[in-house]
């Protein structure tokens, strides 16, 4: 039997094609409508609250470096961090506890003012932001950066992504662009779990769009009143054989006087 031609179905089908293909090829990265930006900012802020405690805190950070899956180095740091009142940026005092050769070394980061103190030389040296990125300690950046403050974000869409434990998670996919030149990474992609705002994964890029680091957040547990990631796995974007595992434990809410975030205090900081 010959099927009767029905123009309504054709019209509906074509409409469907237009809408669906329109959706597919809509470039969310350019859809920086105020609505999109607001949603993205909200997601970023909620995720920031989970990544970093709002109150001044200290945590012990154990950094284990792997090269081709073999442990090559290990470092233990004590990090004291506090959000600045006027701009909500985190400032940090980092004490090197291990290895013995580095014990007592200190680093202060107060915005773009970075000082490194060596107890054997009893001397503080100013570092550039690029110098801070050297070595394992630089991975602390991935933890204490206030993304919502440093980056303009847009929501690229919703997706399902595997976390570090290879479990699928429904997530928001954000693309972030640094607001200022002095932000460590110019661009980033960030995946945040939809239901909990837990960070799942981030990819950080240089201004030339070169992939610098890939971070996976895992081992979520309650610390200072919030379920937070206590471990971050960081893959070197240039040499993917190099992976750093950053474990945080012994979170404590502490009082940190404002006066401590300056070069003059460094020789006195005991970690």
């Amino acid at each position: 039997m010959k099927t009767k031609f029905n123009p309504h179905f054709i019209k509906a089908a074509l409409m469907g094609v237009i809408i669906m293909f329109g959706l597919q090829y809509m470039d969310f990265s350019k859809a920086d409508t105020s609505q999109n930006v607001l949603v993205a900012k909200e997601i970023l802020q909620r995720s920031d609250e989970i990544r970093n405690p709002d109150t001044p805190f200290s945590t012990r950070m154990i950094l284990t470096e792997y090269n081709k899956a073999k442990v090559t180095d290990k470092m233990v740091l004590m990090v004291h961090s506090k959000k600045q009142q006027n701009n909500a940026q985190y400032r940090s005092l980092v004490a090197f506890l291990q290895p013995s050769r580095d014990a007592g070394k200190l680093m202060l980061q107060n915005g773009n003012e970075i000082w490194f103190y060596d107890p054997s030389a009893k001397n503080s040296i100013r570092l550039s932001a690029q110098q801070r990125l050297m070595g394992q300690a630089s991975n602390g950046d991935v933890m204490t950066t206030n993304f919502s403050l440093d980056y303009e974000a847009i929501l690229l869409g919703e997706t399902v992504i595997k976390d570090a434990d290879k479990k699928s998670r429904a997530a928001y996919h954000l693309h972030m662009t640094a607001k200022k030149n002095n932000v460590t990474y110019a661009f980033a992609d960030f995946w945040v779990e939809k239901k909990s705002y837990h960070p799942i994964k981030a990819k950080f890029y240089s201004s030339s769009k070169r992939l610098m680091k890939i971070a996976y957040y895992r081992r979520f547990q309650k610390e200072l009143g919030e379920i937070r990631p206590t471990e971050v796995l960081i893959i070197d974007g240039v040499d993917t054989n190099k992976v750093t595992r950053m474990k945080m434990n012994d979170y404590r809410a502490i009082t940190i006087p404002e006066a401590w975030f300056q070069r003059s205090y460094l020789p006195r900081f005991k970690g």
């Binding site: 094609v17 869409g157 997706t159 992504i161 595997k162 990819k203």
Partner: peptide, 26 residues
């Protein structure tokens, strides 16, 4: 059309991202 268009948005289609997991040890 729906399958073709919605799949990148809603299902685990971002497979290229999951490739990064291969770099993780232990």
């Amino acid at each position: 059309c729906m399958v073709l268009t919605l799949s990148p948005l809603m299902v685990e289609a971002d497979n290229s991202e999951n490739v990064d997991l291969e770099f993780l040890p232990l």
